[in-house]
Amino acid sequence: MRIRSLTLTAVAALAAVALVGCSSATGSTSGGAGADEAWPAAGTDIEWIVPSAAGAGNDILARIVAPAMQDSLGANIQVVNLEGGSQVVGLSKLASSAPDGTTFGYTNIPSILGRYLDPSKNAPFDRESFLPVGSFATNSVVIGVAANSPYKTIDDLFAAVEDDPGTITAGTDSRAGDDHVNLRILENELDLEFNIVHYNSGADKVAAVMSGEVNFALGGVSSFYGPYKSGDIRLLAIVEDEQSELMPDVPTLSGEGYEVAPMNSRFTLSVPAETPENIRSSLEAALKVAAEDPEVIEKLTNAATVASWMPGAEVAKLWEEREATISPIIDELLQVSP
């Protein structure tokens, strides 16, 4: 149903990090790092856990941001991919790691919500298992089909859904994850009914679209951007009110006459709970330097991601708010198939 209406120098960066770390006096001690000690020591090895496959959107962005953080910290940051269980494997590792600053990783909002609010995933963590470091970028949501799909426009796709409710397949990266939530919002707002198929990762979802295993998929543009640029995927719409400068040929959903609120997610980094504040704030300072580095911004932009800095305290507030909003939707999804 169509609705109308409806680089900073390394010396300067290290000085800033040391100042932030030394000014924090509220953290507890852990792993030999006291609350008033500068952190990290030169050459410290740190792992950035990416709970998805190499080459997926999260991985691409981590490898853009990590070198800049590494320069600021004077540390060695290694990007580690731990995929599996719809990101639960990697997130579990992050939550259970020693709170000593040697491990941090993605806790993207809102996707992490479906990982622990869905009891079937048996996630050994929740929001309080993590301490947000900050968020460096946002990711708009797009709707994509295979290059050889018969659906040339979003009107074509939605008309097919209206003609045969419950038969047009839509891929997600997990059951009760942000893709699933967003598809249900589209169903509710536009009076549509999809046949929703769940995969274990964003990479698997995108591969299913390209192979024709599913008719279309919805998700963050960073996961679709490579196949879009190579011509393997056609993007029918971006769920925003304003058109993307990077994708001038992709219309907005609202511009095509479908009234749906903009959809996006935040690339967020966290450390395990109980990590001392001097360590968390040092990582936050380094992430901020990276997020505001012109070279990093250019690379993020080329990956179809909008650089957007948000400090850890604001991320914590956003996380709590989104959990309160999305929890009832996920509860409803878990009671209804798919």
Rank of each mutant, 00 (worst) to 15 (best):
E242W: 10
A35H: 08
S223N: 14
A313K: 13
G43F: 02
P276E: 04
S5W: 12
Y106T: 10
P311A: 09
A146Y: 00
F130P: 01
E274C: 10
P251C: 09
S72F: 04
L183C: 04
A41G: 09
I46A: 00
S111N: 13
F125S: 06
I60H: 02
S5P: 14
A304W: 05
F267I: 11
Y228H: 13
V250R: 00
G105E: 07
I3C: 13
I46S: 02
N264A: 15
C22M: 15
N215G: 13
L334N: 02
M1E: 15
G171F: 01
S72N: 08
S92F: 00
T268Y: 06
G31K: 02
D164R: 15
S140W: 09
S24P: 03
S24A: 11
G74A: 06
P110R: 12
I185D: 07
I185S: 11
V80W: 04
T167Y: 12
W309H: 08
F136L: 12
A146W: 00
S270V: 11
L186T: 05
K288H: 13
N188I: 12
G220M: 00
H198F: 10
V79D: 11
N302P: 08
S92A: 10
A16L: 15
G312N: 07
E213N: 11
G55D: 00
F267G: 07
G74H: 03
L82Y: 01
I46G: 00
V65N: 01
I279P: 01
S244Y: 05
P276L: 09
V141K: 07
D164C: 12
E240H: 11
E314A: 13
I238S: 02
G220V: 03
W39K: 03
G144K: 00
G43D: 02
D155S: 05
N264E: 14
T268P: 08
G101M: 09
E240M: 04
W309D: 07
E240S: 14
E284Y: 03
K299T: 12
T252M: 12
E292F: 09
N195F: 14
T103A: 10
Y225G: 01
T268V: 11
P251Q: 08
L14N: 13
L82G: 05
I46V: 13
N278E: 06
D232W: 00
G105V: 04
A203S: 10
V11N: 15
E256W: 09
D71W: 01
V289Y: 06
T7F: 15
V65Q: 00
T102P: 08
W48E: 05
P227W: 02
G74T: 03
I196Q: 04
T26P: 01
G43S: 10
P294G: 08
G226T: 14
P272E: 12
V89C: 02
